[in-house]
Design a protein around this nucleic acid. Structure first.
Lengths: 135, 135
DNA sequence: GTAGCTGCAAACTCTTTGCAACTCT
DNA sequence: AGAGTTGCAAAGAGTTTGCAGCTAC
């Protein structure tokens, strides 16, 4: 039983076949799949699954904070398992998404929020860039 | 003639009555209005305006970088005039949006991108927090 | 047994678009 | 005059939902 499954049952969710499949898809995806992507991959394992179930499951996982929903200005959502905290750099030429972490950044964000009189609960940072060509 | 109007005509856009109204709305809005908000405010000035025109105009202004489109995880876009560069802290309890700037942050972002082999073109940062209560 | 979950299809929200009429320049 | 713009209504994309049947617990 996977870590994700544990967390779901611990939260009181019934572990149905469909959910098991969706969790497996998320668990083994190295990218940031859209709902459609998750649906297609899940259908490869169990072709009877419905996209409504994918939507409902991803919404549940998002509420439980087991998954992170991204809106990279594309008009739809993309998801990833909420393992470690990191941010994204989107390659504007290829669409490739690169993950990174930066401790200095984390400290500054907390500091900024505190200076404004706020306790930081969540935040999002996305960088958009072009690859530097060697010349 | 407003600064925004100047930039639009300079970009080759025809200055129609509808555009003048939309620009005026954006110019005088202190918040981050949705398309619906802009539409409602514009109708207050010229009730014959259509929401399709608002969508088309905001898309044009976004392409010209005269306006910034935000997606605060709400399922729709919000806009603001691209005057000075800043970021947002969203109050999770009231929905209030607070603007801030931070030079240190700007430097780190450029540095992170460069370390990943990228030239920073654009970026978005949003903080989500709760007001610290005095006790 | 039953509360919760599913698939289906219809509905909903936000946004875009084809078209004929109109209007800036 | 002519290219660009508009309002309208229809269509499109993404997402949610009501319902009857099914399933994990």
């Amino acid at each position: 039983m996977s870590d994700l499954e544990h967390k779901c049952t611990a939260a009181g969710l019934k572990m149905t076949e469909q959910r098991r499949v969706i969790l497996q898809v998320l668990d083994t995806s190295e990218d940031h799949p859209s709902v459609e992507d998750v649906y297609e991959r899940a259908k490869g394992i169990d072709s009877s699954i419905s996209i409504a179930t994918v939507y409902r499951t991803l919404n549940l996982l998002d509420e439980l904070d087991l998954v992170i929903r991204h809106e990279f200005q594309e008009g739809y959502s993309r998801y990833e398992v909420n393992w470690d905290h990191h941010h994204h750099l989107v390659d504007l030429e290829t669409g490739e998404v690169i993950e990174f972490q930066n401790e200095e950044l984390e400290e500054i964000k907390v500091k900024i929020a505190r200076e404004l009189g706020y306790e930081l609960v969540d935040h999002r940072l996305e960088l958009y860039g072009k690859k530097i060509k060697k010349s």
